[in-house]
Amino acid sequence: MEIKYSLQGNVLQANLRGELDEYTAEYVRLSLDTLLKDISCVSSAQLVLDFSGVSFMDSTGIGVLLGRYNKFSKKDISMFIKNPQGHVDRILKMTGIYDIMPKIG
């Protein structure tokens, strides 16, 4: 798993590339939590998770997203998921993640 970031105005985009499972989950957790510290000071900050490069995800990924939502929402940071691929999109839809992190793109 590889994560790259770009900041434009109040929107921070994180591009995830690789497989999101138990083996990579801790890296994703730590990376995104580090971001939380960096963007907490940005007014009306938004976090866009670009999932176009996520080739596989299981329920561990859902747990990671729910955990990040709990942390980011406490700082009033909205989260969005961008361009998830077919199977990943299906899992996100089935588990109701889009109710709290709308799909964009």
Partner: peptide, 14 residues
């Protein structure tokens, strides 16, 4: 507490 979604068996069944 470990951020588990509890959706593993649900996905297997689906």
């Amino acid at each position: 507490s470990q951020e588990r979604s509890g959706m593993g068996f649900t996905l297997m069944e689906s």
